[in-house]
Computed example of a mutant assay.
Amino acid sequence: MVPGWIPRDVVLDVTAAPELEAVHPELLRQWGSSEVWRLSYGLRSVIAKRGTDAQAGEVAAYQRYVVPLGLPAPELLYGADGVIVMADVGRVTLEQEPTADGFLAAAELAAQIHGKAVDGPSGFPPARVKELAGRIELDLEPLVEALERLHEDAPLGVVHGDFVPKNLVTDGTRWTAVDWPLTYLAPHLSDLYTLIRDAVALGYDRGPIVARYVEVSGTDPFLVDRQLLVGGACFCLLALTFVLAEGVRTIPGSSEWIPPLLAELADLLEQLS
């Protein structure tokens, strides 16, 4: 049965189904803060999502970043009150089929997203690090200093905010990034960091992925190394504060992420010092 919160008229219009009862609903994801469905009729389908807490800001992200910049995201068909309906851009994610070619394509996608010319202000200035560090009572002065320097040396770019295999989708020809509510502007490369992080966990070499990003973006490789370190530390910091403030309520087992995230952050801070 199609959930009642999904806008009936949009689904019927896009799928050309004669009635809602003829539409096939498929639950793709259900966490405490988000619920995602595919609605299909014949060969036509759409994706519907309902988000709360941090996941409720996707329409705003589309309006501020995705649409004006023409970012590689699903077309937004409807958005209101935390509910969005999007075009279906493919049925296979990089999580489902984690190939070397897929990770290289994702590196190109990251370069395309971060390389768009944008106007500030930064969504992750050094003051933001100090604020988040205060919440979890950590001394992150090395990160504050590194981020200050990076704001001087690198342009701002779009940060997707959750650039991981489950959010990278292909239709067999083109790759698209989905799930944009955490998007902001920053000079670091946390998106590339999380992509490499998952690739290495699966046994792939980071070198070709970084090289593909450098090739496509035209960025100095030494600057990319700094952007990766800072981006990794910012990712860990955001992940820790999310888990402590929201994840423990909405994602079962997320409290187990805290010790490895702290260890990962400590290692990155050591490299930044």
Rank of each mutant, 00 (worst) to 15 (best):
V158F: 09
V158T: 05
V159I: 15
V159Q: 10
V159R: 01
V159F: 00
H160I: 11
H160D: 04
H160R: 07
H160L: 14
H160Y: 09
G161Y: 12
G161W: 11
G161P: 07
G161M: 12
G161S: 12
G161I: 13
D162W: 10
D162M: 11
D162H: 08
F163H: 03
F163P: 03
F163Q: 01
F163S: 01
F163G: 03
V164M: 07
V164N: 09
V164F: 01
P165S: 01
P165V: 05
K166V: 13
K166A: 13
K166Q: 14
K166R: 15
K166F: 10
N167T: 13
N167Y: 06
N167H: 15
N167S: 14
N167K: 10
N167C: 10
N167M: 09
L168A: 06
L168H: 05
V169D: 00
V169A: 02
V169L: 10
V169R: 06
V169Q: 01
V169Y: 00
T170D: 04
T170P: 03
T170W: 13
D171M: 08
D171A: 07
D171Q: 09
D171E: 05
G172Q: 04
G172H: 12
T173S: 14
T173D: 07
T173H: 12
T173A: 14
T173C: 01
R174G: 00
R174N: 08
R174S: 09
R174K: 14
R174H: 12
R174V: 15
R174F: 05
R174I: 12
W175G: 04
W175I: 10
W175D: 01
W175V: 12
W175T: 01
T176P: 02
A177N: 09
A177H: 06
V178S: 03
V178Q: 02
V178G: 04
D179I: 13
D179C: 14
W180H: 06
W180R: 06
W180A: 05
P181S: 13
P181I: 15
P181E: 02
L182S: 11
L182A: 06
L182E: 14
L182I: 04
L182N: 00
L182G: 01
L182D: 15
L182M: 07
T183N: 08
Y184G: 00
Y184E: 06
Y184V: 14
L185H: 08
L185K: 05
L185P: 00
A186V: 15
A186F: 13
P187I: 13
P187D: 08
P187T: 11
P187Q: 11
H188G: 01
H188R: 02
H188T: 02
H188C: 07
L189G: 01
L189V: 06
L189M: 05
L189I: 06
L189H: 02
L189T: 03
L189S: 02
S190W: 02
D191E: 04
D191P: 05
D191W: 04
D191M: 08
L192A: 07
L192D: 01
Y193P: 02
T194H: 04
T194W: 14
